[in-house]
Design a binder for these strands. Structure first.
Lengths: 338, 338
DNA sequence: TTTCATTACTAAATCGATTTAGTATTTATA
DNA sequence: TATAAATACTAAATCGATTTAGTAATGAAA
């Protein structure tokens, strides 16, 4: 019942541990056919399984990466995570995921725990509030890639959406179809949450560019659980815009719930465009016009960049990758011919 | 730049490594206040972070569990995974997730890799086709819990839904509202995929119990990508039932797409009940009547059971936990008064 | 005054691999 | 024939912790 170690295999095959180790690492160069067979036999007979922990200790690599995300409930997170996992699985790496829940303290703790576990690199969907820690990782040349959000003062690899472009796509589409009163729905703006800032800024600029009014009332920037109330308030006072831009899947859900609750007709009364892929966009009534993030490509890129850093531990040139959003035209915006 | 080890801390604090180790493990009993302070100082000064790999090698525990799932795309998987992760995080454990993609070969490989990595236990959403491997784990008293599916011939802990009950709930609800022609939509039946078998068997028995006809045509049991074609075929030949029971979220999506594509009215032309929580059930039109699995409780239970096994490595009495489904009445079934 | 306990530590073994430096034998080359 | 090179291995150090057995100093009890 006790664990079989390399020493046991060595004894049975009547060779030294070193030779067994060579065998396991496929360094057959100076090994006789016969020895090789004897070791293979011994391994099979004993049902030997190497202990990767022991190997990791010596080799200082664990073939494991850590991912710290600020919210697993986001579609983006889930999808990017899948891509990362797939990319890792291909390379024989494992992934440990931790959820910081957008709490910088937790994020800090998890980064430390993962480092203590000797992960070979970190992919972080950052809270954005631990610049000192991120910076320290960089200085130690510890492999690090940011995803979704970036931290401007930390010069690390980052994989994110061209958020400005995404907002622009939405506004332009609305504008070209004759919409003038366009609102945006987003969680509260916080300076260190880059995509949020970029999306709202892109939205504002696109309005101006299209010569559309920038109405304060149409900026619904409040905590997710308060979005419905806010929208209902606007609706009841007759100041609801004709179109809404939901900046992610979570805000979209709130908008849809609001629509449902108040029997609002989409797109006639209220048109909708949102960022992120929701799985039901094409079966919903009406089908939902969305702006999709290339989550798979983003996850793949993040993993690739991390592996690049892991491979050559030195002189890595950090880069920010902006992925283009894809406009998916469906049925939640109509042609306005008023 | 090089790693700070316990030896460095010991040297700086002018004590032995043993004492530093005692300190880190909070065994302060026979340690002077002064020594304690000196060690604390040294740790801070050097920025020492313990190497958990080294500790794991000696202690033979990694504070990490492995989870092998057969399909990450399932809602159930995602949700149960979150619960497991939460439970682990509370105990300071990490989780490594692998996706077997319902391929027994991959499952086998991942189980072996995770064991080589010395995980302290495994939670498996089994393909069901590796009974010999599961059995070996059991015999070695390696902590193991099955989720969603079980493997009848392997007497391990298992956490699953009361599938028969779930099917019964659906049929009874339909029957009580005057439906007679009820269909079921499921991926192909395979004997080792227990929930599928139980759901369809429960469905059949409930029909009989309610005195309803069991019509072959109404059993749509085909690969996910072929479900729409099959439904359309039935529809065009005028043999579509009045009600459909979709046995999971993936089949539900196909049914919804079919409905959308053929402009079928729900619930008037076709009523629907499905198993699993889909996030849009309450914003869809009509709102979707579903049978929910207590995914959070299931994940929590699976983790708890695993930790129980990890705690007392011996004399563990395996148990199968059947969780009750919850019927959530919404709008995709009407009262038939024909 | 001797003996025993208690306190506050430490030296060395250990976990299970990898790796380096080295040995012994055979073969090839000068 | 002597030497160098290639082949087929092995002993021992190492990775960075934990842990066991032990030591030295002090205080208390007999």
């Amino acid at each position: 019942m006790k664990k079989v170690t390399m020493a046991d295999v060595a004894k049975l095959a009547d060779v030294s541990k070193s030779t067994v180790s060579q065998y396991l690492n496929k360094r057959y160069e100076y090994m006789s056919e016969e020895t090789r067979k004897r070791i293979a036999m011994a391994i099979k007979e004993l049902g030997y399984q190497p202990n990767i922990i022991a190997r990791s200790l010596k080799q200082k690599t664990t073939m494991t990466i850590g991912v710290v995300v600020f919210n697993i409930m986001h579609m983006l997170t889930t999808q990017v995570l899948h891509a990362i996992e797939e990319e890792c699985q291909e390379r024989g790496f494992h992934v440990i995921v931790s959820n910081s829940d957008d709490d910088p303290e937790k994020e800090k703790k998890y980064i430390e725990m993962l480092r203590a576990k000797q992960v070979d690199g970190l992919i972080i969907f950052p809270t954005g509030k631990n610049a000192d820690i991120y910076q320290k990782l960089l200085e130690e040349r510890f492999p690090l890639v940011f995803v979704d959000r970036m931290v401007p003062e930390v010069k690390a690899d980052a994989v994110l959406l061209d958020n400005q472009k995404a907002a622009e796509l939405a506004v332009e589409y609305f504008a070209e179809r004759g919409y003038e009163h366009i609102g945006i729905v987003t969680p509260p703006l916080v300076s260190h949450i880059v995509p949020r800032m970029e999306r709202i800024e892109g939205f504002r600029q696109a309005l101006v560019k299209k010569g559309l009014p920038v109405v304060d009332d149409y900026f619904i920037t409040t905590e997710i659980p308060r979005i419905q109330k806010e929208l209902t308030r606007l609706y009841e006072s007759g100041r609801l815009p004709e179109a809404l831009f939901a900046i992610n899947d979570l805000t979209l859900m709130e908008v849809l719930y609001f629509i449902k609750g108040n029997h609002i007709n989409t797109p006639d009364e209220l048109a909708i465009i949102s960022i992120d892929d929701v799985p039901f966009a094409h079966v919903y009534t009406p089908t939902l016009t969305t702006i999709s993030q290339p989550t798979f490509a983003m996850g793949k890129k993040a993993a690739e960049r991390l592996f690049l850093q892991i491979a050559k531990k030195s002189e890595h040139q950090p880069q920010v990758f902006r992925f283009s959003p894809t406009f998916i035209e469906r049925g939640s915006v109509k042609e306005k011919t008023s």
